[in-house]
Each structure stands twice: as structure tokens, then as C-alpha cells.
Amino acid sequence: MATIPLFPLNTVLFPDGRLPLQVFEVRYLDMVKRCIEEAEEFGVVPLLEGDEVRKPGQQEAIGTVGTLARIVEWSAPMPGLMHITCLGTQRFRLLSAGQTKLGLWVGDIERVEDDMAVPVPGEQQDVANALGSVIRALQQRHVAPDKMPLQPPYRLDESGWVANRWCELLNIETPQKQLLLAQDNPVLRLELVQDMLADAGLLS
């Protein structure tokens, strides 16, 4: 068990995913500066109730599964504003959580083992092929590497990696993404993604 600062967001970070953030609230500026100085990670958890920006009297509710985030790029264009880019590293389960006087969420967590490197089954190969097509289309449009929603190495033969990247790309509700993040079987997560892609008419 470990105690870490938490950053509730209206999105879900998956392992190996990149997340750009604009930070301006005092509670998060202090947290980010400390994480940079001490090379520590913080936890990204889904915000299920409330707004990302703190408001007087606002009640917040957060998810119970999240992903550790490591800051890989940062800049401070002006006082009171930081731009950071985070890399998702490892999933965790939230055992307990509370807020400090400044409103920063802090939680006791239990790390979840990384997905096993399971090959994409033949029945789900169309999901990997479709993701490969997305990557090629972005490359053909000469999208700058730092602007790509998907970062190399492209592990298109790995069930968990393919499923996670689709989970980031698909326009689905935060609670549904949290359920996918909580799914420990990477092949089952990929099957669920396949169903959503098929329903949306995105598979040939």
C-alpha cells in the first residue's frame, strides 16, 4: 500500500497513454511542483461528480480505479500556470481517500499488476488492424509526433495495448471507461472494445 496525491479528471488515463494538462489551481500547482522536484508520480482518477475546477460548496466523487502518472514534460509559461505532459504507468485500486485543507485529494492505493503481454487473438485482429489504419492516417497527414494521440512503440500485436489505445480514442462516458480500466483480463477488454467499434460501424 502507498499514499499518493490524486488528480480527479473528466477522463481516464490508461497505462502507456499520454495526457497533456494545464494546471493553474493552487492545490495542483503545489502537487505538480513537488512531483517534479522529487521525481514522484501522482494518481489520475475519474471524476464522477463535481467539476474539475474547485467551487465553493462543491461535492466531488471520484472513481476507485486509476492510473499512476509520471510527468515527462513540463513548462511554466507564466506565474500560476504550468503545462505538463504525463505518461500513464501502472493501474491502481483506491482503498481510501480524503481531501486536504486546500482541497487536494490524497489516497491510499494498491497497485494492480501490469497486463500480461497477450497476443491479439485472430477473432479480434480487425480491432488491431483498424488501430493500425488510424496510426497510418495520422502519419500520412504529417501530424507532429508530439501531437499524436498515440505514441510509439506501436504494440499492435498486444491485446492490452490495442484495447487501451482504443479506450482513449473512443468517445464513451467516463464511468464506462473506468469499467474498462478495471477489467483485469486484457483480451476481455479487447473484446468489449470490439463490440463498441462494431456497434459504431468502425470495423470493416
Rank of each mutant, 00 (worst) to 15 (best):
residue 164 N to H: 06
residue 193 V to W: 01
residue 167 C to T: 00
residue 181 L to Q: 01
residue 154 Y to L: 06
residue 81 L to S: 11
residue 77 P to H: 06
residue 140 Q to I: 02
residue 60 E to V: 15
residue 117 A to V: 14
residue 92 F to W: 09
residue 118 V to M: 08
residue 57 G to L: 06
residue 74 W to H: 15
residue 193 V to T: 00
residue 152 P to Y: 11
residue 36 I to P: 03
residue 85 T to D: 13
residue 85 T to E: 15
residue 34 R to F: 11
residue 99 Q to R: 14
residue 88 G to L: 07
residue 39 A to M: 08
residue 174 T to Q: 03
residue 154 Y to H: 10
residue 105 W to Y: 13
residue 2 A to L: 15
residue 60 E to M: 15
residue 95 L to D: 10
residue 152 P to M: 07
residue 187 V to E: 07
residue 46 P to E: 11
residue 154 Y to G: 02
residue 178 Q to Y: 06
residue 95 L to E: 14
residue 25 E to H: 10
residue 193 V to N: 02
residue 19 L to N: 08
residue 85 T to P: 08
residue 77 P to L: 13
residue 100 T to P: 01
residue 50 G to N: 01
residue 186 P to I: 03
residue 23 V to R: 10
residue 157 D to E: 05
residue 122 G to M: 05
residue 112 V to H: 11
residue 36 I to N: 09
residue 107 G to K: 12
residue 157 D to M: 09
residue 53 V to K: 02
residue 199 D to H: 08
residue 45 V to H: 11
residue 165 R to V: 00
residue 204 S to F: 03
residue 147 K to R: 14
residue 109 I to P: 12
residue 189 R to E: 06
residue 199 D to V: 12
residue 162 V to Y: 04
residue 129 N to A: 12
residue 64 T to Y: 08
residue 52 E to M: 03
residue 94 L to E: 06
residue 197 L to P: 08
residue 103 G to N: 05
